[in-house]
């Protein structure tokens, strides 16, 4: 596929000091902030406006059955995965593709751990206990917010796996371009972690 010769795909623009991909990913993250911002606002509105009693009332923390231990473990897993993501990029900066791939693989592994824990220890038991999204608005929000977040994690897994596998061919022809792509993926990954850092207290601790 032919693309026109474009400036600033790799080298930073003299004024903005960003290469195009990085500016693009920042803009994308800005829109993501608005997406999750709208959902968090909905959370606040629905919680404040919930009826005081009856089936639609906001459940007390104990009734939700959410374990801060599981949530906390997953938080830790994601934070470590963020660190390994940075390490992968740093390894690329020192031109060590082998180490970078190892770090990327660790990131994917940690992300999978997150998903598996979420699925087996949280989603499935909750649904079995009858706490489906339609049970009340707390669970509706819980499943919607964490589900959307999990989709972001899965998206990240796919992209990182691509860079370990076929995507890494770019390293041979243009290592700097490849490094930039990993950097942008890293920015996205940190954002996904950040969303979780907000989700954790909002859902598990209050």
């Amino acid at each position: 596929m032919s693309t026109a010769v474009l400036p600033y795909t790799v080298e930073p623009h003299p004024i903005t000091r960003l290469y195009s991909g990085k500016l693009g990913i920042w803009l994308f993250l800005a829109s993501e902030v608005m997406l999750f911002g709208a959902l968090f606002s909905s959370y606040v509105l629905l919680r404040v406006g919930a009826p005081v009693a009856g089936p639609a009332a906001w459940p007390a923390h104990a009734e939700t059955g959410l374990s801060w231990k599981i949530g906390g473990f997953n938080t830790l897993v994601l934070i470590i995965s963020s660190v390994t993501m940075v390490m992968a990029w740093a390894a690329l900066k020192t031109h060590n593709i082998g180490r970078a791939k190892a770090y990327l693989a660790t990131t994917v592994f940690l992300a999978l751990v997150f998903i598996v824990v979420k699925l087996t220890l949280e989603y499935i038991p909750k649904i079995q206990a009858g706490h489906t999204p339609s049970h009340n608005n707390f669970f509706a929000l819980y499943f919607t917010l964490t589900g959307l977040h999990a989709l972001h994690i899965i998206g990240g897994i796919i992209v990182i796996t691509y860079f370990i596998g076929p995507g890494s061919a770019l390293w041979k022809t243009d290592p700097e371009y490849f490094t930039n792509r990993v950097e942008c993926t890293g920015l996205y990954w940190h954002f996904v972690d950040l969303v979780w850092i907000f989700l954790f207290p909002v859902l598990y601790l209050t």
Binding site: G37, L39, P133, A140, T144
Partner: peptide, 25 residues
């Protein structure tokens, strides 16, 4: 487009949940 569309996407997801998963947003 960048900043105004995501809230509608969020709203769309919530309404989809109301229709498909029986939530009450």
């Amino acid at each position: 487009l960048l900043l105004a569309f995501p809230p509608l996407e969020a709203a769309g997801i919530l309404q989809l949940m109301d229709r498909v998963a029986g939530t009450s947003f």
